[in-house]
Design a protein around this nucleic acid. Structure first.
Lengths: 155, 155
DNA sequence: GTTTTTGCAAAGCTTTTGCAATCCG
DNA sequence: CGGATTGCAAAAGCTTTGCAAAAAC
């Protein structure tokens, strides 16, 4: 979980987009990607808690600011969960913008989003709205939780 | 804005679904429908403020509880706005579940949602998720605000 | 008369902000 | 060094809850 020199170099490419390169942002980014691979979406709070267990704790404000900056820069997808909580997920490329989230265990599946995109585009055309941004929040029960309804809740 | 005997009778049909019929729920429902026709989505707070101007003020908690109950009963659509704020809109029938909201003035347009529904259905089939519920939040700039970018912000 | 509902106030939650100390370049 | 960034703590925002009083059935 510690930032190796190599990952720092890689991180510079992306983190610098947000401003200066700092150790904290590198840590947040690394934990963010690790969380992405492990469980998909994470909240700023849980990411902060995760970072507290490392040897380089990062402040909660910094986590919030970094995640928001990443989202604004298009490097993270955001989704709402529960009452006002925001969940973030790292976005490697420029694709993948919609997810399907299991209500039971919280696992998230990235969608090709072609159908969704088409729907939104059609909506924009019909309604004459411009600059249409869409946030599609799909929730359901994943195959595992659906077959045997006794799964571990999301972390 | 006062509940007439007639509207009380009508209201009973729906409000009773939430439990007992009370004057407060009738007031909330009436103001809710009035707001729906006037400006589309409303927040619990603004609805409460609106009710305070009448001769029958209703507590904020009651507004929240009534709106949540209506949403749970399927008589209201919910959408997120800004950071954690929930906006409600009365749903007369069982259709209309998606809206396009203008970022500038807050006006909302109900969508036929056919394309969106199809997209979600396809998503559910492909991913093998079950009980897929989707909340599509589409925002953009409405024709009026798009043509002349000087419109009154939402109330 | 019993049960639900109301309403006020306080707590809850996540997120944002202010400002001095710190770190990057 | 100069300016951006951090972090703590406090504030902000909307929403929920506890409990006595009131209302509905």
């Amino acid at each position: 979980m510690t930032a190796s020199p190599r990952s720092q170099t890689i991180a510079t490419q992306e983190v610098t987009l947000l401003g200066r390169f700092t150790q904290q942002r590198a840590m947040v980014r690394e934990a963010f990607i690790a969380a992405d691979e492990a469980e998909g979406f994470v909240s700023a709070q849980s990411l902060h808690a995760r970072l507290l267990t490392t040897d380089s704790p990062v402040g909660l404000s910094t986590v919030y600011r970094t995640l928001s900056a990443l989202a604004e820069a298009g490097r993270a997808d955001v989704v709402r969960y529960g009452h006002g909580e925001r969940l973030f997920r790292f976005r490697p490329g420029s694709d993948h913008r919609h997810y399907l989230i299991c209500t039971e265990c919280g696992v998230s599946v990235a969608l090709d989003s072609v159908a969704v995109e088409k729907g939104a585009a059609g909506v924009a055309r019909t309604s004459e709205f411009t600059a249409v941004r869409h946030t599609v929040e799909l929730t359901g029960t994943c195959p595992d939780c659906g077959h045997s309804a006794g799964s571990s809740p999301r972390g």
